[in-house]
Simulated assay, not measured.
Amino acid sequence: MTIKEKQQQLIEDFSFMEDWEAKYEYIIDLGKSLAGMPAEKKSDANLIKGCQSKVWIDAEFKDGKLFFNADSDGILPKGIVSMLVSLYSGHTTEEILSSDFDFISKIGLQEFLSPSRANGLMAMTKQIKFYAVAYQIKS
């Protein structure tokens, strides 16, 4: 499944939910499925700056694709980062760099988040793109 197809599926999933309470619960449930990270990966190098909660994202380049691992100490940010990991993990750097983050506005996530959480979300998306650029240069 392409990133665009995954984004479209997420948009459709959110469209079935009528209120933000249901969407909020869905995001939290996504976080519960996140495997988490080993303690040694929860380093300052992997810490996302600008997040209200602590959020860590790490990437591994394997067989021409990037695989993301993430965790957070907050339930909502953990759900958000889980959503990003599921969308972008397992894709090539080219696919990640050519993708957009329009799905965020299409599901209304930025409107729902406080300004500091919205800044954290943008910091997470920038980090994913940063890893794609870094690994594209290395490969």
Rank of each mutant, 00 (worst) to 15 (best):
3 I>V: 08
6 K>Y: 10
8 Q>Y: 05
8 Q>P: 00
10 L>C: 01
12 E>I: 05
14 F>L: 09
15 S>R: 14
17 M>D: 06
17 M>A: 06
18 E>C: 00
18 E>V: 11
18 E>S: 14
19 D>V: 07
24 Y>D: 01
25 E>G: 05
26 Y>P: 03
26 Y>L: 04
27 I>E: 05
28 I>N: 05
29 D>P: 01
30 L>W: 03
32 K>V: 02
32 K>A: 06
36 G>M: 02
38 P>K: 15
39 A>L: 12
40 E>R: 12
41 K>C: 11
42 K>Y: 02
43 S>L: 05
44 D>E: 15
44 D>M: 12
45 A>V: 09
45 A>H: 10
48 I>K: 02
50 G>H: 09
51 C>K: 07
53 S>W: 06
54 K>T: 06
55 V>S: 09
59 A>E: 13
60 E>N: 13
60 E>C: 06
62 K>A: 04
62 K>P: 00
64 G>Q: 10
64 G>H: 03
65 K>Q: 15
65 K>W: 08
65 K>N: 13
67 F>T: 08
70 A>F: 10
72 S>Q: 06
73 D>P: 02
73 D>M: 11
73 D>C: 12
73 D>Y: 13
74 G>E: 09
74 G>N: 08
74 G>T: 00
75 I>T: 14
75 I>F: 11
76 L>S: 06
76 L>M: 15
78 K>C: 04
79 G>D: 08
79 G>W: 01
80 I>G: 01
80 I>R: 07
85 V>W: 08
86 S>M: 12
87 L>G: 00
89 S>N: 05
91 H>Y: 15
91 H>N: 14
92 T>D: 06
92 T>S: 15
93 T>C: 13
95 E>W: 04
95 E>I: 01
98 S>L: 10
99 S>H: 08
101 F>G: 08
102 D>K: 15
105 S>M: 03
106 K>A: 11
108 G>H: 07
109 L>F: 12
111 E>N: 14
118 A>V: 02
119 N>R: 15
121 L>G: 01
122 M>G: 07
123 A>R: 12
124 M>I: 05
125 T>Q: 13
126 K>Y: 07
128 I>T: 02
128 I>R: 10
129 K>L: 06
130 F>A: 15
132 A>I: 04
135 Y>M: 11
137 I>R: 13
139 S>G: 04
